[in-house]
Design a protein around this nucleic acid. Sequence first.
DNA 1: CAATCTTCCACCCATTAGGGTGGTGGTTAC
DNA 2: GTAACCACCACCCTAATGGGTGGAAGATTG
Lengths: 222, 222
Amino acid sequence: MKYKIDAYIVDDHAMFCEGLMEAVNRSETVRVSRCFTSFRDCRAALVQRCPDVLLLDISIPERQRETEPAPECGDGIAFCQWVTGAYPKVKVVALTIHDEYAVIRRMLDSGVHGYVLKSAPVEELLTAIEHVWKGQRYISPAVENIIRQTGSKAVRLTQPEQKILEDVCQGYSNPEIAERLRLSAETVKWYRKRLLAKFGVKNTVNLVALVLKEHILPDGGE
Amino acid sequence: MKYKIDAYIVDDHAMFCEGLMEAVNRSETVRVSRCFTSFRDCRAALVQRCPDVLLLDISIPERQRETEPAPECGDGIAFCQWVTGAYPKVKVVALTIHDEYAVIRRMLDSGVHGYVLKSAPVEELLTAIEHVWKGQRYISPAVENIIRQTGSKAVRLTQPEQKILEDVCQGYSNPEIAERLRLSAETVKWYRKRLLAKFGVKNTVNLVALVLKEHILPDGGE
DNA sequence: CAATCTTCCACCCATTAGGGTGGTGGTTAC
DNA sequence: GTAACCACCACCCTAATGGGTGGAAGATTG
């Protein structure tokens, strides 16, 4: 019996973990040895032993319904950066429902080796796993399409723009933002105008709706 | 060999469908005979033959990325209403990631027999399937908690309130909404104030963010 | 019937948003 | 260097928002 690629799954949806584990383990090439529904658990396991491949859903909420105090692993992006930094030998495949460009971009930037959507069949995931295991990158064709189509016209934000956008999305007024960021109210006003222009929307409501829908900002909730 | 409960799965994430099918089919009591990744396909199949139980993810987008023209089945809520109306013998189990009260409420109101979160283990789903098959309702304990906790303080909207909220969330100004709904601008203004008060937020941005995050309105996107 | 709620509209007010146009100083790119 | 961009601030203006208070017609409910 030939060697099977050893994989972990990290996904807060237990049902998805269990199901995917069954489906993947029917294959000849890959074996899912462990599943985790939180970054914390996975982190603890990685310290003990590393798999060949880590299948990672980055849309896991940081705190579940304000019950837990605070996670030491941050969000999916932070966790991914930590894994790729601390365990370079572990190949990470992002496995998510997110087909928004901003999410894909952030994930690819945090050192992920593969990106597969949950809308893809298991077969494609297996292909991705084999690719990344061999050291190749694997980006789902569907994802590549999105990158090609929306990547060119994607809005790039400077640092102050992003900071002000965050505050705008939290409902702060220009004077409030000015005080929070130690800027002139006029400057904030000017940035707000720039943001509206950059995103091509006509008012703050449309801006916020767009940002939330497309997950433009790293911290979707707050 | 004893009879197994026949089930269909409807979920736009093929990977989830395949995995769950494998996991469920390991059980002694339930057999998933078919999977669908769109309401349209499922609808076509139901006309031919009905399962005992339908496992239904309602967060399937109506149009995928503006490619298809328009679905004849509407969104998950509409599809659920259609199924429970046209095929009363089919027991529907809502199977979603949504733990927001507004979504749960709408789903329960559209005649669903069970409600299970994807964060639950497969085991719980099997329990739910057996319950609804016997004619009982099954609401996940986690979901019942949410109903108890947030149900009492949930905001109830009147018809014009909802209509105006929809327009507000799309970024229309008071004069614009007034024209769209054939109302006085002053009236719209007054409703907007009521909405802010009802939801306990201080401005429109916070209102819109809340509505989008909690899926207060049936039509999340548009 | 009285109480209550909803729907609708009105006027007052201060603050904010949004659009335009302008400038300075700094960094980066070619 | 010089063009381009960025960060920052300023003044102009109109329109919209948000808060207060008020009233009238209609339906619902006890």
